[in-house]
């Protein structure tokens, strides 16, 4: 047995599902523990933040950071993890592309505070106090809170990242792939992949999907349907059935567990490296199949608008997991909208 490596897990703006995903290695967790000591993980071990601060720089072999960067605490610990770990992995959709917390970029700090600390029905806040980063009580005790940022960032917006493991959360198979990668590396059997690699495929989900109707087959959809309204055919391609499926704009490698469970893909693996923007890519795919017919010439631009307006909430559907990594990143306020 070669040297034993060390592993740290740290969460940012995370639902902690990613910690559970690591535990989801189930019996294989022992394989992991055979080659690695988990030296820091607030979810799994009784540790304090200072324990991590006190560790020497680069003393941890591999760090998994999951969750987005939403406040100054997330950013601070992203930087500490970068300093302490030789290899830093953005683990899960939130660290990779912002994930579900990244959807907060449709709003901003001011609006979020207004909603949460003022407007909701159950809020009782007559003095309208909003979170402050510092507060001193009558006896001079100073209390501090991290700063809530105006927008959500991804891990690589704030630190240098070595590898990305996409998905929300990474599946058992994906974890096994990383485990084997690390194991082979520890045992000197192979090198780690080139820096910046997204540990998954470079094809789209459709390329590996058992429902793929086949290259060259033209799909035309008249009416878009929502998964909440229909019982989908368990074998036919979702898009062919008019149900929005992000497969054409999503990276393969998850093993399509959703498709297998008769749920369309929502795109948690993010786009392949051939595209800059998952939404732009999905938009193209929809535009090529929606209501193309013989009497196209008769259609006015208003007819087209009507046709495409069947798609409710394109931003939410296209960027469910990737808004902070999209080209436009966040919602702005234009004049006269």
């Amino acid at each position: 047995m070669a040297r034993k490596i060390s592993l740290a897990l740290k969460r940012g703006a995370s639902c902690v599902g990613c910690d559970i995903a690591v535990v989801n290695l189930s019996q294989k967790l022992f394989d992991l523990l055979e080659i690695a000591d988990i030296v820091f993980s607030p979810t799994l071990l009784d540790v304090k933040y200072d324990d991590l601060r006190k560790m020497p720089d680069k003393s941890i072999t591999i760090g998994l950071y999951h969750g987005a960067v939403r406040n100054s605490d997330n950013e601070e610990f992203a930087k500490i993890m970068r300093d302490k770990c030789q290899v830093l992995i953005a683990y899960g959709a939130c660290a990779h592309m912002g994930g579900i917390p990244g959807l907060a970029n449709v709003s901003n700090r001011e609006k979020i505070f207004q909603t949460v600390y003022k407007e909701t029905f159950s809020t009782d806040n007559p003095k309208c106090v909003f979170p402050q980063t510092e507060w001193v009580d009558d006896r001079g005790h100073k209390l501090t809170l991290p700063e809530f940022y105006d927008e959500v960032y991804t891990l690589d917006d704030v630190v240098d990242v070595d590898y990305y493991v996409p998905a929300c959360p990474p599946t058992h198979e994906m974890n096994m792939e990383i485990l084997n990668l690390i194991k082979d590396w520890v045992e000197g059997k192979r090198d780690l992949p080139p820096k910046g690699t997204v540990i998954a495929r470079e094809k789209t989900l459709c390329d590996e999907c058992p429902r793929n109707p086949g290259k060259g087959k033209k799909i035309t959809v008249e009416k878009l349907k929502y998964i909440s309204e229909v019982e989908p055919d368990p074998e036919k391609c979702f898009l062919e059935q008019g149900i929005l499926c992000l497969g054409p704009a999503t990276r393969a490698g998850c093993g399509a567990p959703c498709i297998e469970a008769n749920m369309p893909c929502r795109g948690c693996m993010g786009p392949t490296s051939f595209v800059m923007d998952q939404g732009g890519s999905m938009l193209s795919a929809i535009a090529s199949i929606l209501g193309i017919s013989e009497d196209e010439i008769e259609l006015s631009e208003e007819d087209i608008e009507k046709l495409v307006s069947q798609l409710k909430d394109p931003l939410g559907c296209f960027y469910r997991f990737s808004l902070p990594k999209s080209l436009l990143r966040k919602v702005v306020q234009d004049r006269e909208v």
Binding site: A287, S288, L307, D334, V337
Partner: peptide, 27 residues
């Protein structure tokens, strides 16, 4: 033959998207 049929759908969808991003779709 049909390139512009795709274009007009993309543009209509993009306008919806830009509006959600807070941009005036007339841009």
């Amino acid at each position: 033959i049909g390139g512009n049929y795709r274009t007009r759908r993309r543009m209509a969808l993009l306008k919806m998207l830009l509006q959600q991003f807070g941009l005036n779709p007339r841009r």
